[in-house]
Design a protein around this nucleic acid. Structure first.
Lengths: 215, 215
DNA sequence: GGATACATACCATACAGTCGGTATATGTCA
DNA sequence: TGACATATACCGACTGTATGGTATGTATCC
């Protein structure tokens, strides 16, 4: 446990390391079951550093949600699913990408803000709202592609891009719950296969005709 | 707070009342943030009664998941969505029923075992597994109708009844997360509209031609 | 020399869990 | 039928500790 020394270039990174620890531990144990000492131990910092950077445990929860929003938006912005010229292909590539990154341990790919929002719904409204902003901020990034795909494909059916973007999130989040409940990541992937089929239906395209991503 | 007296016919109901309190409080605050004292206060029993009926807080968590499985399976077994003679109509009626019971406060209609499984995934595997049994036990009750509908409609596409039953749960659970994150029950209902459309697609039936259940 | 970024010892309390006691029901044997 | 024993279902004061948070000191940077 090489704690950063005073001279170390890592100096000042206590905040980031605590946020990373929060991300990892809360996803596995939940917010309430994660103690400040847990976080300090994992981040290899002291309690003084914790309460210097965050005024309270709840404040860390909010900061963790915001940190999640920042890092994931960077991650998704850099992802290859934006490459296709066709908007619908980008949407389907997003779903395929979400499926592809489901690998390894459950606590590594499940959604921090989905877990927290669910858990602290009534006990910590501030954290819950921060989680909400993260989730709906992410759905908003999908909306433009979905809207463009609607236009390109001349879709006029009575569903909105906003609604489908949210539904996509719901399927992903629900898949995570099943995966956790059944302790099997494949359950999350299975949901995305259905979502892919649904989106193709909405845009009247045949299955598996844009690219290859099933077994 | 009329606590049951020694002579009261309510005698022996402490266990049930604690389980009901657990159901309500955990759905709002999460498992870890719910204290034994919270539960005793709400159930109007003493700590002695709590630890007489449950050996530990974790044991109550498991019992609460099992209680949830029992009561919800009774509730759904008695629900009117089983009435239609046609299997597909029963499946669609299930989705409509799930949408219809979304009313009132969020903590009243969201899923206890979905919330708990997500939260205690790594910190309390026994509780998580009890939640898993409840969730997948419920999906199993849908499977028969889906399978019958597949047969009746001559569907041979490469999805299974089991998989669609699980997907249905994923959509419902995911809808709950969005509803909590956005503090708006309509977000959960919206997901069920998409699910309805998807299922009709899978069975090649037009939208809204079997009954009325929108808005 | 002041602000920032920690470190460390300490504190108050909330928490899960314990333990000795009590009231009631049920069984049993004379 | 009644006395006694046993088991069940609680009651509520107590406890050890874990936990969130604080207070004070110190090194480094600007």
């Amino acid at each position: 446990m090489p704690r950063p020394t005073k001279q170390s270039p890592e100096r000042g990174s206590a905040r980031i390391r605590l946020l990373e620890a929060a991300r990892d531990i809360i996803r596995a144990k939940g917010f309430a079951a994660t103690t400040v000492d847990d976080l300090c131990r994992t981040a290899a910092v002291t309690k003084g550093a914790f309460f210097h950077n965050f005024g309270s445990k709840d404040a860390l929860g909010i900061a963790a949600a915001e940190f999640w929003a920042e890092t994931t938006s960077g991650f998704f912005a850099a992802a290859p699913y934006h490459d296709p010229a066709d908007a619908l292909e980008r949407v389907l590539a997003y779903v395929a990408f979400r499926k592809a990154i489901i690998a390894g341990d459950l606590a590594e790919f499940t959604c921090l803000v989905g877990t927290m929002a669910q858990e602290v719904y009534a006990s910590a409204p501030d954290i819950r709202d921060a989680c909400g902003r993260s989730i709906f901020g992410h759905t908003a990034t999908l909306e433009a592609d979905i809207e463009a795909a609607r236009r390109d494909h001349g879709i006029t059916d009575d569903w909105t891009a906003e609604s489908l973007a949210r539904y996509t999130q719901a399927v992903i989040q629900g898949g995570f719950i099943l995966a956790k409940a059944g302790n099997d990541p494949a359950l999350a992937q299975e949901s995305l296969d259905h979502l892919d089929r649904y989106i193709r239906h909405l845009f009247h395209v045949a299955e598996d005709d844009t690219d290859e991503w099933s077994h």
